[in-house]
Simulated assay, not measured.
Amino acid sequence: MHYEGMVIRPPSEADSILLQVTVGCSHNKCTFCGTYKSERFKIKPDETIMADIAYAAKHFKRQDRVFICDGDALIVPQKRLIKYFREIEKQLPWVKRVGLYANAKGISMKTPEELQELRDHGLGIVYLGLESGDDQTLKAVNKGAGSKKMIEMGRKIKDAGIKLSVTVLLGLAGREHSRVHAEETGRVLSAMDPDYVGALSLMLIPGTPLHQDYEAGRFELPGSAEMLAELRTMLAATDLSGGLFHANHASNYLPIRAKLPEEKDKTLRMIDDALEGKVALRPEFLRAL
């Protein structure tokens, strides 16, 4: 397989075939993210992508999922993207699902019919980084889209019959704005109604603008108890018709997995117990990105 730069994938795609179609992220301006700072965004040549699919057909017969990297594959023109999906169908007929990362810009460039076409050729899940539902926070971290746009794009994926997994970042608004960030994120998640929510805890990356703000005293990172209180507020404000709310990433102080709506109250009680010191938190040295 031909990989360039840093290739990342969601935790749930750990056993998937990683097919790198783009290098980097077309937006690449979020102040908290250092993943693609050294990469110039590009779409890889067709011959390289096709060669990787052929390699996967020979060597990855046990994996039944494909994850398309990098940051926002939906920005690839539809004709080219459909060509890759058809080649996956042809050479990897055992693959049951294709997933990819997307941002608001990439989703907006696809018509509902184009998304449905991708679904019909195997696209089963889209991972969208919301980070926050609070417009002030989204603007501060240079996310590139406000909460209204995020809701519209999330619903667009759902309406196309594709599963939606949304990522949010605890601590992203700092200490002073924490509660508003949590409440507004719950509001936006409720409006999107995703199939999965993944809550991560902010870990500052040296060299990023947000880390520079932290060192200069312009950003206060919430502590473990404050992150946990933020998680509680966010979960309390989130109403899903039927989905999973995860906070079991290695960055989190308290791993949770709640099926909503039925396990919401039980999970809130568990967070309360942790806030009261009745449940041990993950120690700092065990946290990781």
Rank of each mutant, 00 (worst) to 15 (best):
V180W: 00
L118P: 04
R86G: 07
M270H: 13
R179G: 02
R62C: 12
D272Y: 08
A199N: 01
E87F: 10
K143Y: 14
R40G: 13
L221T: 07
T35C: 08
K266N: 07
L115Y: 02
E184G: 00
I107G: 01
Q63K: 14
L202I: 03
A57H: 08
V166D: 06
R287L: 15
W94H: 15
M227F: 13
V168G: 01
I75A: 14
V166N: 07
A258D: 14
T137Y: 01
H246L: 07
P283L: 10
I17T: 10
I49W: 04
A216W: 02
D239K: 05
A274H: 04
I256D: 05
G146K: 10
D159V: 11
Y214G: 07
L275W: 10
T111N: 00
I271L: 12
A237Y: 07
D195C: 04
K149S: 13
K143A: 13
S147Q: 00
F41K: 09
A182L: 00
L231N: 12
I82N: 05
L244Y: 14
Q63N: 11
S165A: 14
H181M: 01
D64R: 14
K156N: 05
Y127N: 08
E230N: 06
L286P: 03
I49H: 06
K96Y: 06
I75T: 14
A280K: 15
R62T: 13
A140I: 13
F41N: 09
A51N: 00
